[in-house]
């Protein structure tokens, strides 16, 4: 009996905290060579997606996975993914994740460059530059940026730890074209 869908917790033994990893054609070539060698294969980045929100059972395993794998703590507050109830447990669940926007409002709103858009389109958060002003939180319409106890934003890094711990295949990682170069 295997009812876990498309998930292998074996693969998440190592802390999956690498930043939005670019997937590139292999073997690694020098940029110029690469351009010539793989012209048809666009560069992509990984993005978290709520593929089947209606399959959510509200176990919160994804939230625990997020804080456990990213911060080594047991916490709902430290989770970048949020499973919310609407009208209590008898209503539908709402799964809030960072959409990995191509033109990210959080980075545009940040006055100090703490939320920085990288050339591949992903946003990296520099804690040391953050003044805790809350502009990024306000700018994100979907509510994916929230503030933790330290009054600093908790930012999804699209590592997929939550995907690995969703028992119902609600979440997935998708490959999207990088916005830059």
């Amino acid at each position: 009996m295997r009812f876990l869908q498309g998930v292998d917790p074996e693969m998440i033994e190592s802390p999956a905290v690498e930043e939005n990893k670019e997937t590139e054609a292999k073997p690694v070539l020098r940029p110029a060579e690469k351009e010539a060698a793989t012209p048809a294969k666009p560069r992509t980045r990984r993005r978290l997606k709520v593929a089947h929100p209606e399959r959510c059972i509200g176990c919160l395993s994804c939230m625990f996975a997020c804080s456990r794998m990213r911060t080594g703590t047991v916490s709902l507050q430290n989770s970048a993914i949020k499973v919310q109830t609407q009208g209590g447990i008898e209503g539908d669940f709402r799964v809030v994740v960072c959409r990995g926007c191509q033109d990210p409002p959080c980075a545009r709103a940040c006055p100090t460059g703490a939320m920085e858009k990288r050339p591949n389109g992903s946003v990296v958060f520099h804690k040391d530059r953050c003044i805790g002003c809350g502009s990024c939180e306000k700018a994100c319409l979907v509510g994916a940026v929230t503030f933790g106890k330290e009054k600093k934003p908790i930012k999804c890094i699209h590592c997929g730890a939550c995907v690995d711990f969703c028992p119902h295949g609600v979440l997935m990682l998708e490959e999207i074209p990088t916005s830059g170069g």
């Binding site: 059972i57 509200g58 176990c59 919160l60 395993s61 625990f64 447990i89 711990f165 028992p167 119902h168």
Partner: peptide, 9 residues
């Protein structure tokens, strides 16, 4: 549905 912290549902 699940209790919080249980993946069984």
């Amino acid at each position: 549905l699940s209790c919080a912290g249980c993946p069984i549902g």
